[in-house]
Simulated scan of single mutants.
Amino acid sequence: MATTVEFLRDYGVDIRPNGQRRWPDELKAQIVAESLKPGMTVNAVAARYGLRANHLSEWRGRARDGRLVLPALAEDDLCFAPLVLREEEAPAMRMAQERSSPDPQALGPVEIVMGQVILRLDGATPAARIAEIVRAIGPTP
């Protein structure tokens, strides 16, 4: 059975003689992505890789700030987001559907909400572009 040092070196971790470890960004991103999966905890993932939970939390913060790029999700990991219509928007939506060529501006902006961030797109944004954006954002933790 491989020791922890051998296991980590197989993943590309540079372990110095004094015990310090230098983790490649790709591996950090993979570990962060694993910690964001439903049912996973920071402590459990950190223990699996033999690192401190506060280091993993720091890496998660870097990913949130855009300083660590997470790997793309497999197509099977895609999920649908709930659609919420406000009552005051329903008549405008009905009128637009009744027209033969709906005016995208009449529908108003498309909003994608990720925590405290709201992404507003023009009503004329093609559905394919919206799908690309949603795939790039990925699921929220």
Rank of each mutant, 00 (worst) to 15 (best):
M40V: 11
R86C: 04
V32R: 01
G39N: 11
P71F: 08
E87L: 13
L68G: 09
R60Y: 04
L56I: 02
L56H: 06
E58P: 01
A29Q: 01
A47G: 07
T41M: 12
I31C: 06
H55Y: 06
G61R: 08
E58H: 08
N18G: 07
W59D: 05
H55D: 08
E75L: 12
R22D: 01
L73F: 04
P71D: 12
L70V: 04
I31H: 06
M40W: 00
I31L: 09
K28P: 05
G12N: 11
L83K: 06
L51S: 09
R67E: 15
E87H: 11
R67D: 15
L70R: 04
T41H: 13
P71V: 06
I31D: 07
R64L: 10
E75Y: 08
A74V: 09
L68A: 11
L83R: 08
P71H: 07
L27D: 00
P24D: 02
E87G: 09
R67V: 01
R86G: 11
V69S: 10
R64S: 09
L83T: 12
E88Y: 12
P82N: 05
K37P: 01
V42M: 06
A44D: 15
G12W: 14
V42Y: 00
N54S: 15
L56M: 03
A72S: 14
I15N: 02
R48A: 15
G19I: 07
G50F: 05
R21A: 14
D77S: 14
N54E: 15
N43E: 11
F80G: 06
R64K: 14
E75H: 12
D65E: 15
P38F: 09
V69E: 04
G12E: 11
A72K: 11
T41R: 15
G61L: 00
P82M: 07
D65Q: 14
G61K: 07
L73G: 13
P82Q: 03
L78R: 15
P24V: 04
V45D: 01
V45G: 02
A47I: 00
S57V: 01
G39C: 12
L85F: 08
T41E: 04
